[in-house]
Amino acid sequence: MAAADTCGAGTLSSRSVASEAGQGGTSSFQRKSKASGGPGGGPRLLSIAGTRPSVRNGQLLVSTGLPALDQLLGGGLAVGTLLLIEEDKYNIYSPLLFKYFMAEGIINGHTLLVASAKENPANILQELPAPLLDDNSKKELEDVHSAKTPEPDVNMKIAWRYQLQPKMEVGPVSSSRFGHYYDVSKRIPQELLQSSKWHGFFLPEHISPDLKGESCFLSCGYMRLLEFIQKSIYAEGFDGANPQKKQKNILRIGIQNLGSPLWGDDICCKENCDNNHRLTKFLYILRGLLRSSLSACIITMPAHLVQNKSITTRVRNLSDTVVGLESFIGSERETNPLYKDYHGLIHVRKIPRLNNLTCDESDVKDLAFKLKRKLFTIEHQL
């Protein structure tokens, strides 16, 4: 009898639990999903503005500012890697890729670090191209201007909707899209520059006059730059040791004309120079800083001026991604009818192998670029 009472009580309690679960719409017995962040859920992907994970290896990617180049590199530039741009002969088109990379960082709210030995970083930022309007803004603007004879009520609604909006030429671009297009004939709005965060390294300001005539000038210039980059990474928590107070962000590093005589390097002047390992040591340490931080770096280098080609090979090996530009100016191809619609060739010399043994190397090798009045485009040369 006692057993029956116990069994009945157990049945009653199970029914009450079932009824309570049915009334609440949820059960107390639920399986933990991976998205819940439980012990078995695995790590979550970082959600940072202007980034997306690679579909092949899950590596976090940022845009180079040129969607066509992103496609050639397997979706974008991986965070923690180094992109080397081998400058064209007259250094006309390589600065455009450099400025695209920096302008994309400003649009997405990334922190910039601009280093140069020739031009003040503040002047470089003033020359960044202006972003083009996104498709939604273009459509809304076309809808407004296409209404030839609107009714009074509709006209008042449109006026009320747009009267407080800034002009379309200087309005902020929607950063939800990965990769944007830019108008090289216009400059980036001052409102975007003033709201951005950036650090500038101008070599003449960091080298004292007493050291300019000494043999250690080369190493001093590179070491000062490494110290500046390391300080910026550690101070703002891009390495993770000092967590960022606000939302996680990306540090975009840009270095112009590295290895040129402007940096005090003599690899462009002598074939057998005494200090031919200083540039490779600099890149080795820099890549270590990139690997341990939320940062991405672009470097332009006059590879065509390097006298010793073995140095060029070592520099390419120390870079994760290598892209070379070949201009038609002053060459036989400038008058060749086959290349009449283009201004040069782009050579993808190296694609990174990240977290796998293969890379997204494109089968298309004949790639040409042309600079229109507003856009820099990369196309397949037929």
Rank of each mutant, 00 (worst) to 15 (best):
M1Y: 07
A3I: 14
A3G: 05
T6S: 12
T6E: 14
T6W: 04
S14T: 08
S16G: 00
E20W: 05
A21V: 07
G22K: 09
G24H: 07
G24N: 10
S27N: 11
R31Y: 14
A35E: 10
G37Q: 03
G38Q: 07
R44L: 11
L45V: 06
T51W: 01
P53K: 04
V55L: 14
L60K: 02
L61T: 04
V62I: 15
S63M: 04
L66W: 01
P67V: 05
G75L: 04
G76Y: 05
G76D: 07
G76F: 02
A78C: 12
D88W: 10
K89D: 09
P95D: 04
L96S: 03
L97F: 11
L97K: 06
F98D: 08
M102G: 06
A103W: 09
N108D: 13
N108C: 13
T111Q: 11
A117Y: 05
A117G: 15
E119C: 05
P121G: 01
P121L: 01
N123W: 08
I124T: 10
L125V: 05
L128D: 06
P131N: 02
D135H: 09
N136I: 10
E142L: 15
E142T: 09
V144I: 15
A147P: 00
T149L: 13
V154I: 08
N155Q: 15
M156F: 09
R161F: 12
K167T: 11
V170Q: 07
S175Y: 07
S176Q: 12
G179Y: 04
Y182H: 06
D183S: 12
V184C: 10
P189C: 01
H199I: 03
G200W: 03
P204L: 03
G213N: 11
E214M: 11
S215Q: 07
F217A: 05
F217P: 00
F217D: 01
L218F: 00
C220I: 00
M223G: 11
L226K: 03
L226D: 04
E227N: 14
Y234F: 08
Y234M: 09
E236M: 08
G240T: 06
A241Y: 12
P243K: 00
P243N: 00
N249V: 05
I250V: 15
Q256D: 13
L258W: 08
G259A: 03
C269R: 10
E271Q: 11
E271M: 06
D274C: 07
H277V: 14
H277Y: 14
L279K: 04
F282L: 05
L283Y: 08
Y284T: 13
Y284G: 04
G288N: 15
G288Y: 01
R291P: 00
L294R: 07
L294S: 12
A296F: 02
I298C: 10
I299N: 00
I299M: 05
T300N: 14
M301E: 04
P302N: 06
L305K: 00
L305A: 07
V306Y: 02
V315F: 01
V315H: 01
D320A: 03
V323Q: 02
L325V: 11
L325P: 12
S327N: 09
I329K: 15
P337E: 03
L338Y: 13
D341E: 10
H347T: 08
H347G: 00
H347D: 13
K350C: 08
R353Y: 02
N355W: 13
D363T: 02
D363N: 15
F376E: 01
H380L: 05
H380R: 14
L382K: 11
